[in-house]
């Protein structure tokens, strides 16, 4: 019977993952900045599993400039800079398939578990990996 479930859920804790704060702050950027400096607690983000495909990590020194990653990337995230023979990745476009990681012959690319990538500027420092 659904009513048993209703009573149980009424007494249980809600299943919702809470927002970082209870109410909309005046400035989200300032809130996150304060939280980073340890002032003011926010509800932490849900834990992510070990193998999660998050923001790409690039080892510039290992890169040999073979452009294989550029060829396989479905979202055209990767820009090849021919003068340096290195790449620059625009994470704002990334679909997190990590095909470039599989393709890289020298293991210069990897995925991290970082996933808080929302930004108002697609060219911000946080969203460009090079």
């Amino acid at each position: 019977m659904i009513f048993v479930t209703l009573v149980r859920q009424l007494l249980d804790r809600p299943a919702t993952n809470p927002f970082p704060t209870r109410h909309m702050p005046r400035s989200i950027i300032r809130l996150l900045e304060r939280a980073r400096r340890g002032k003011g607690a926010i509800h932490p983000p849900v834990p992510v599993p070990a193998g999660m495909r998050g923001k790409l990590v690039y080892d510039r020194d290992k890169c040999i400039g073979c452009q294989l990653c550029v060829r396989v990337c479905p979202a055209r995230v990767i820009e090849f800079r021919s003068e340096q023979k290195k790449i620059r990745m625009h994470v704002a476009r990334c679909t997190f398939c990590s095909q470039c990681v599989d393709a890289c012959p020298v293991a210069a690319l990897a995925t991290s578990r970082e996933f808080l990538l929302a930004d108002t500027d697609r060219r911000s420092r946080n969203l460009i990996v090079e």
Binding site: L6, V7, Q9, L10, D12, P14, A15, T16, P18
Partner: peptide
């Protein structure tokens, strides 16, 4: 609020 809690929401 109560309806939300019965549905396991915060409300």
């Amino acid at each position: 609020k109560l309806a939300a809690r019965m549905q396991a929401r915060i409300g």
